[in-house]
Design a protein around this nucleic acid. Structure first.
Length: 470
RNA sequence: GCUCCCUUCGUCUAAUGGUUAGGACGCCAGAUUUUCAAUCUGGAAACACGGGUUCGAUUCCCGUAGGGAGCGCCA
């Protein structure tokens, strides 16, 4: 049994899809609280629904948590493997008369549920007060919890305060299905106790479950953990986050080029805050995090702000880390590994490039003119700039630049300006065309650093190609 | 339908029984500028509504409206 003097939190997703972004935030809060208190953060995979649980989903949870940098203590617990233990708890309640065998058929149940809903009461099983020996021999039965019919159950929630639920709203929950397998409600309670969980931070969709679980826990004679139910994250339109928003799994964010540190920062600010602090390190978040500062209202995802936070991290990260992240990102998007020359070119221009990017995807896109030595095909806007007149001027410029001794931005600038003066032109008459031919775009970092960045040979090759109308 | 939860700028949030209601993203304007950014300066922008309680409510209470969640032999 775990030491109950220290905080133990847990993240308990069911492996039925990807790691949902809302769940990722829940995991983050549990992780922050455990790290803040010097306690433990446990991971439990709730795989008791055999039909829906998949190996791929389990992997997605592990990968997602690791990507976010949320390390869990000890081995992940697989709920399904603890079935026997759960069943034992149910049987104990049966022996103690706190649960009963229910022989209702699916049809009877359906009718009773309709009645309860219409009358606003609980679903009642006739077997609650009947002797199970009256049941036809061999008929399968479910084990139901004998919940109080009257009164109320109060959840002492660290976020929501005391929440009182009338017991008339709480049915006799099924503990063991008629095939003998334990239900979620039973498994959670038994596992949380066995794992020594002291603080349950989860989505507020579990708030009424907390009432049922409280009843169960008390029947089992165990201490009720501290609860903290946090409001769910909604989509930008305020509706529940759904596939329609196209941004459910954390893997999507990774694929979009968001950085883990930025995600931690952004997610932490959703439903939690520390004064006016917006950008803070994970260490600071750990130091500051407290359940008391959790908000009660649901928050919406704001991709503009997320991009802004990410841009901040992209700029603040050490160069070699950005390069490493960019290369991994490129690889996962089908790019070949960078050559030494490519890496060197990107490194040389990294600060200029990252200043214009919010995500790794932006960065990779903006660095594309550095990824090849060949002539670049201009995009639509750039092509418009390359008129016959502009092309002719580029030819003159290429000839003039060929004699630049040291291929450095400052010297290139001197040479270009001398050439312009010679021709009686302003930079505005030639600059856009240089950019269009060398970068293939109408926007880029400073012209001269771009010329330096691609290297003399490639720069001249592109200028000449544009001049010859290629 | 029943039960429960929520409501401060468009969004994320801070603060308070007496404040010019603060910050951030976004937006607008200006500065800077070879493009695009970045940066700097300035600006517009909120206490959902109606009743109370109070000398005084954004803050406390009650309603209304709006939003959300739950009501499975799913988790």
């Amino acid at each position: 049994m775990a030491d109950h003097r220290t905080v133990v939190t847990r993240f308990a997703p069911s492996p039925t899809g990807f790691l949902h972004i809302g769940n990722a935030r829940t995991a983050l809060f549990n992780w922050l609280y455990a790290r803040h208190t010097g306690g433990q953060f446990l991971l439990r995979i709730e795989d008791t629904d055999r039909a829906r649980s998949t190996e791929a989903a389990i992997q997605a949870i592990f990968d997602g948590l690791r990507w976010l940098g949320l390390d869990w203590d000890g081995e992940a617990v697989f709920q399904f493997s603890r079935m026997e233990t759960h069943a034992r708890a149910a049987n104990r309640l049966l022996d103690e008369g706190k649960a009963y065998r229910c022989y209702m058929t699916a049809e009877e149940l359906e009718a009773e549920r309709a009645r309860a809903r219409a009358e606003g009461g609980r679903v009642e099983s006739p077997w609650r007060d009947r002797d199970w020996r009256e049941a036809p021999a061999g008929r399968p039965f479910a084990v139901r919890f004998r919940a109080p019919r009257a009164g109320e159950t109060v959840i002492r929630d660290l976020v929501q305060g005391d929440v009182r639920i009338p017991n008339t709203q709480l049915d006799d929950m099924v503990l063991l299905r008629s095939d003998g397998t334990p239900t979620y409600m039973l498994s959670v309670v038994v596992d949380d106790w066995d794992m020594g969980v002291t603080h349950v931070l989860r989505g507020d969709d579990h708030l009424t479950n907390a009432a049922r679980q409280t009843q169960l826990i008390e029947a089992l004679g165990w201490p009720v953990p501290e609860y903290a139910h946090i409001a769910l994250i909604h989509g930008p339109d305020g509706a529940k986050l759904s596939k329609r928003h196209g941004a459910l799994g954390v893997d999507w964010y990774r694929d979009q080029g968001y950085l883990p540190a930025a995600m931690r920062n952004y997610l932490a600010r959703l439903g939690w805050g520390h004064g006016d602090d917006e950008i803070f390190s994970t260490e600071q978040a750990i130091e500051w995090f407290d359940i008391a500062d959790l908000g009660k209202s649901p928050s919406r995802l704001d991709f503009e702000k997320m991009r802004n936070v990410n841009a901040h991290y992209l700029r603040a990260m050490p160069q070699d880390e950005v390069l490493e992240a960019l290369e991994a990102f490129a690889a996962s998007h089908g790019h070949a590994a960078f050559t030494a020359a490519q890496r060197a070119r990107i490194a040389g221009m990294l600060d200029a490039l990252r200043e214009r990017a919010s995500t790794l995807a932006d960065l990779l896109d903006q660095a594309s003119f550095l990824l090849t030595d060949e002539v670049i095909a201009p995009d639509e806007a750039a092509a418009q700039i390359l008129t016959d007149e502009a092309r002719a001027r580029l030819g003159d410029l290429a000839a003039a630049l060929a004699s630049v001794r040291s291929w450095q931005a400052a010297e290139i600038e001197t040479a270009v300006k001398a050439h312009l003066k010679d021709k009686g032109l302003k930079l505005g008459a030639l600059g856009p065309a240089i950019r269009a031919s060398v970068v293939g775009r109408t926007a880029s970092p400073s012209l001269f650093s771009v010329l330096e960045g691609v290297g003399r040979e490639t720069a001249l090759k592109r200028l000449e190609a544009a001049a010859s109308g290629a």
